[in-house]
Simulated scan of single mutants.
Amino acid sequence: MDSPATADRSPRRDSADAPNLDTRAGRLEQRLLRDVTALVDAAERSDGNPPLSDQTWVELRTTDDPDRVRTVLAWLDHQAGRDGELAGAVVVVSPAAGDADGAATMELVVHPNCRGRGVGTALAQAALDHAGTGRLQAWAHGNHAAAARLAERFGAEAGRELYRLRLTHRTDTSAESSGSEETPRVWDETVPEGVRIRPFQPGVDDAAWVTANAAAFADHPEQGSMTVEDLRARQAEPWFDADGFLIAEDTTGPEPTVLGFHWTKIHPAQDGHAPLGEVYVVGVVPEAQGRGLGRLLTVAGIRHLQRQGVDAVMLYVDADNTPAVSLYRALGFTRWDTDVMYVRG
């Protein structure tokens, strides 16, 4: 059976009413992964936002380095490690080795049935104790009032906003049906001469994509640092579909080179809700920017999702990325929610 790199199985309880805190380092064993998955699912159903990012899930499932990932689990009314409902969890992912300027990233979730009982406060304090005097940034997915209050209590300030935008209708690109000349232009799918758009080929495009991704997101600490191992971990996820991972390449040279990409994702139907498409990531290498490839790839990916029967499409974009926000609004996306990163230190 899988086992974590290290585990402190002794519950920490400061008072009779405080939650038991169970600290784990490295990846989680399968039993605890199931518990955390159930906790996250319950919170997402209640809040409408996934409390943990895809990268955090990758770390929880694959990372053996005890210095890289620290998870604190909170249990109420029973001893740590016993079967039962998990009250909450916080995951702290430390910066990569050698990244002296990096900050640890924290994500925290409390079960809807266990809120208002000090679980979030206890978990946040445990995360701060682990981070010590180092820099710590915490994502509040949806930026609920409780998250803002917790941030204020611990002296953290909002440092970054991530918009969640949503497209909830199919756009017809014909001028007759749109009644506007702008709509056909922004949805134009004409591929420039010397460029080809094709599906990603796992095992063939991995290294080239990682290189292109690093170039496209050189100023984006999370996306730009993805490795081949990170890519392959996502390929192992049940939602991965190579046909929805579009690559734009230059075909004018002796060997094709990657110019950009659009990785799409489909969230399956659940709880009576229809499947939801996602513009997972769109990137264009610096030397190919300014040629309209970002718009073209975005449109091609949305059309792929719609051909799979998905009517609603969502995406995340930094609030201060004005060109991208303008493009998405021109395509018909509207603001749905906002994630906020709180920073301390």
Rank of each mutant, 00 (worst) to 15 (best):
M1S: 15
P4Y: 01
A5C: 06
S10P: 06
P11Y: 10
L21M: 04
R24Q: 11
G26K: 06
Q30M: 05
Q30V: 13
R31W: 08
R31G: 13
R34A: 15
R34N: 13
D35T: 08
T37V: 08
A38T: 10
A38E: 14
V40M: 12
A42S: 09
D47E: 13
N49I: 00
D54R: 03
D54A: 07
Q55G: 06
T71M: 15
A74G: 02
A74F: 00
H78K: 10
R82H: 09
R82Y: 08
L86V: 04
A87C: 09
V90S: 03
V93M: 10
P95Y: 07
A96S: 09
A97P: 09
D99T: 00
D99N: 13
D99G: 02
A103F: 13
A104P: 08
T105N: 10
E107R: 05
V109M: 09
H111S: 02
P112M: 00
C114F: 15
G118V: 10
T121Q: 04
T121V: 11
H130G: 06
L136M: 03
Q137L: 06
A140V: 11
G142E: 07
N143A: 11
H144M: 03
A148T: 04
R149P: 00
R153S: 12
G159I: 05
L162E: 10
L162Y: 01
Y163T: 03
R164I: 15
R170A: 15
E176W: 14
T183H: 06
V186F: 06
W187V: 13
E189C: 12
T190R: 15
G194R: 07
V195F: 10
R198W: 02
P199H: 11
F200C: 01
Q201I: 14
P202A: 01
D206R: 01
A207H: 06
A208C: 04
T211K: 09
A212L: 03
A214Q: 04
D219R: 05
E229V: 07
D230P: 01
L231F: 09
R232N: 11
A236N: 15
P238N: 05
P238D: 10
P238F: 13
F240S: 12
F245C: 01
F245R: 08
T252N: 13
G253H: 11
T257Q: 07
V258M: 14
L259R: 07
F261V: 02
H262L: 07
H262V: 00
W263Q: 00
K265D: 05
A274T: 13
P275M: 12
G283K: 00
G292L: 01
L293I: 05
T298M: 08
G301C: 01
I302Q: 14
R307L: 06
V310A: 11
M314L: 11
V317D: 03
A319T: 09
T322I: 13
P323I: 03
R329F: 06
R329W: 10
A330R: 14
R335K: 13
W336E: 14
W336R: 15
V340I: 15
Y342F: 08
R344K: 07
